[in-house]
């Protein structure tokens, strides 16, 4: 059985590719997690605002808190890429 060997260029290229996939997953999955978190909070926020308009500012802040998750993902992706 012949063993296929990989040239250095090909190995480097696939390593870069895997890093890119990893970075993509980090941002993508963190984004999905954020979406799931914001789904519940956003719905409750709309309900609460419908009853009491004064709390709009407060619930807006609460709704964007899960954005931190996607920022973590982004940071990981940037660290991977650079």
């Amino acid at each position: 059985m012949a063993v296929e060997t990989m040239s250095v260029e090909v190995a480097e290229a696939s390593a870069r590719g895997l890093v890119a996939i990893g970075a993509g997953l980090a941002v993508g999955m963190a984004g999905l997690a954020t979406a799931i978190a914001q789904y519940g909070i956003g719905t409750a926020a709309v309900g609460a605002t419908a009853e009491n308009k004064d709390i709009f500012g407060l619930v807006l802040v609460l709704t964007v808190i899960p954005e931190t998750i996607v920022i973590f993902g982004l940071v990981v992706a940037l660290l991977l890429l650079f």
């Binding site: 519940g40 719905t43 409750a44 709309v46 309900g47 609460a48 419908a50 009853e51």
Partner: peptide
């Protein structure tokens, strides 16, 4: 979630 939040308020 929407309706129950409104009820709670």
């Amino acid at each position: 979630i929407y309706v129950t939040t409104r009820m709670r308020v």
